[in-house]
Design a protein around this nucleic acid. Structure first.
Length: 611
RNA sequence: GCACCCAUAGCUCAGCUGGAUAGAGCGUUGCCCUCCGAAGGCAAAGGUCAGAGGUUCGAAUCCUCUUGGGUGCGCCA
């Protein structure tokens, strides 16, 4: 399997083509091909693209960079793609494309079903792990991030040609389950699930609602935090018994899972986030025992203070640690993976390694991406190293695509005004309400049916939330401000939808007038700029793919929408007498709309026909 | 204590495989609807890229240190 590098993506944009030409020119002059890299110009007032290779190479060659640049430039003599190639400043090569080349590109994009999107050279299997919303806990704002970023990456990788499997990876195992069991047994001790002598069958109806779980869980967590030793011991015991298959606990747990999953599905559906698998940590459970045996057989499992651990630090990888008595000792870094607790329970990390074994067996992914909070970086380092040591995956096949935390206006983790966490479901409702209000305020969507209006409001709300999320780099700890996201002005999701709607409106009117899109002939500056943006889609997707960074895609889509808006203001499409001009501009509108809608789709957004 | 991440315009954020005048949105100021949807467009003001050294012809970008934040550190997930 080829490495996850630039060469892995097949591109056909100007940047790639000019880079290839420049690279062979540098090679012909005796330099390294890598310095031939051509990028979009930093000075759009001077040129479309630039190459800085002559500067990079001049020193070692003891040559004047401008002279090197001149030699490279001579290789482009007669290149019909270029209107001009200038040597500027200390030795920049400034490429300006001809109108003809831009027109050709625009027409090529218009006839390309992929609208300029690149493809992977070789299809791979990629597993995307959405890092476990938990049983009993309604999703909150932090889950929005993983869901939205993961969904966008899933769509992007898939569109570029990989086989992608998204797994919700539900948090349905471990101590929290024991907490719930014990918590419920205190509230309703007479339920048959707690009677070890009960022979069944157990009631089909769940004894708890999600609201019940939402009450019991925080209460029991608080007790554990407060070091309630009896409660903790009981929860651990219940966890162990659940994992060992005690029938009443299993039956009860099944209800917890079903009840919780319904709520999760509702929220995810509202966001347009879909999973191929709804696996949970519990699904890896059958793999735990054989895996533990295997680790033992491989000599990786070591007894430590009554627990079983796997040492993952390499020789020399240590950190200093201060003990309670004040002395400082060297300990391995990263710390060992705690595989089996002294109670005999499988731990979080154990389950995660077992999940890798399970996935290897069921799917054999070439790459697994974990879209999970960066605070778990060390945990994943332990898990990945264990998997590599045991041979469950090849080095580099496991990757933590970490994301930052979502903070409130005060810079601390997001809370509501009364200090609670904001439920994701409530957040979505608030967003939809605001969208409704804003549409009415602006007098938009008045001609729509009630259903169409509701659909539009939902699309606008989701666009606002998701685009705000996606336009930040995934690692940024950003400040969540619903009012700002919902302002619908400037760099927002609704702006993108609005531009799409304007395009659709033009095309609709053109249809009514019997006008059709035709051959695109670029002439005006705004048209040039727009075609250059369209051409940049390839690179934006490539970078998004390689860096697992949807903010690059988000930025491209925004700039495209902006480019269109400028074009819209500068170049009338439907007015005037020149039929060829109208056909050309209609072609450009149609092409731009298609790429915009594709970009929106890859972000998990969709534009209404009207708003 | 140790480790990792971060510090860019009044605010929220891009940019960071080193290159020419550091960008966007919001906010502020001014202009543009007898013309395809003004949730729009154009323009202006606003930055010692936390600070100090270093590498380099060239540093927001790479290295070191300092300061100020965030996060994590075996029987929770």
């Amino acid at each position: 399997m080829p490495a996850f590098t630039e060469a892995f993506i097949e591109s056909r944009d100007f940047k790639t083509e000019l880079s290839a030409s420049a690279a062979s020119a540098f090679v012909a002059e005796g330099f390294d091909a890598s310095v031939g890299r051509v990028n979009a110009s930093d000075r759009p007032d001077l040129a479309d693209f630039q190459c800085n290779g002559a500067l990079a190479v001049a020193k070692a060659a003891k040559a004047n960079p401008r002279e090197v640049a001149a030699k490279i430039a001579s290789h482009f003599d007669g290149d019909t793609r270029l209107d001009k190639l200038e040597i500027a400043g200390p030795g920049f090569l400034n490429f300006t494309l001809s109108h003809g080349a831009l027109s050709d590109r625009a027409n090529a994009l218009a006839s390309d079903p992929r609208i300029g999107a690149p493809k992977v050279a070789q299809r791979r299997k990629v597993m995307i792990d959405f890092g476990g919303p938990n049983v009993a806990k309604e999703m909150h704002i932090g889950h929005l991030r993983t869901a939205v970023i993961g969904e966008s990456l899933k769509r992007t990788l898939r569109f570029l040609g990989d086989e992608v499997i998204g797994d919700a990876h539900f948090g349905d195992w471990g101590l929290q389950m024991g907490q719930l069991i014990v918590g419920l047994s205190e509230e309703q001790p007479d339920l048959p699930y707690f009677d070890a002598g009960f022979t069944g069958p157990y009631p089909a109806e769940s004894p708890v609602t999600l609201a019940d779980l939402g009450r019991i869980y925080p209460k029991s967590s608080a007790r554990i935090k407060a070091k309630d030793a009896d409660f903790l011991a009981a929860a651990r015991k219940a966890t162990k018994e659940l994992q060992d298959g005690r029938p009443g606990y299993r039956a009860l747990w099944q209800h917890f899972v079903v009840v919780s999953r319904e709520a999760l599905k509702r929220d995810y559906a509202a966001l347009g986030v879909e999973f191929d698998l709804w696996y949970g940590e519990s699904d890896a459970d059958p793999y735990v025992e054989p895996m533990i045996a295997d680790l033992k057989a491989k000599g990786l499992l070591v007894e430590d203070n009554g627990a079983q651990v796997v040492h993952v630090a390499r020789p020399g990888e240590t950190r200093k640690k201060k003990l309670d008595d004040g002395s400082v000792v060297e300990v391995p870094s990263p710390p060992p993976l705690l595989a089996v607790s002294s109670e005999g329970s499988a731990m979080y990390g154990t389950t995660d390694v077992a999940t890798i074994v399970q996935r290897q067996k069921e799917f054999g992914p070439d790459l697994s991406l974990y879209i999970v909070d960066q605070r778990q970086a060390e945990h994943f380092e332990q898990v990945f190293r264990t998997a590599y040591l045991a041979g469950y995956a090849q080095e580099g096949q496991l990757e933590h695509a970490a994301n930052g935390t979502v903070n409130g206006p005060d810079g601390t983790p997001f809370k509501t005004r009364d200090g609670g966490t904001l439920k994701l479901g409530d957040l979505i409702s608030q967003a939809v309400e605001k969208a409704n209000a804003r549409l009415h305020e602006a007098g938009l969507g008045e001609g729509l049916s009630e259903d169409a209006f509701a659909d539009t409001a939902h699309k606008v709300a989701v666009a606002a939330l998701k685009f705000a999320e996606l336009s930040n780099h995934r690692l940024t700890n950003y400040i969540f401000d619903l009012d700002r996201f919902m302002s619908f002005e400037g760099k927002t999701g609704p702006y993108l939808l609005y531009q799409a709607v304007r395009m659709k409106s033009i095309l609709r009117k053109a249809g009514e007038q019997g006008l059709a899109a035709g051959l695109i002939a670029v002439a005006e500056p705004a048209e040039r700029e727009l075609v250059l943006l369209l051409d940049g889609f390839d690179n934006a997707l490539k970078e998004t793919y390689l860096k697992r960074a949807p903010n690059i895609l988000a930025d491209h889509v925004y700039r495209l929408a902006q480019g269109f808006s400028k074009f819209y203001a500068a170049c009338p499409v439907l007015v005037g007498e020149d039929a060829a001009l109208k056909a050309s501009r209609l072609g450009l509108v149609s092409l731009t709309l298609r790429q915009l809608e594709l970009g929106l789709d890859l972000m998990g957004l969709s534009a209404p026909d009207q708003m």
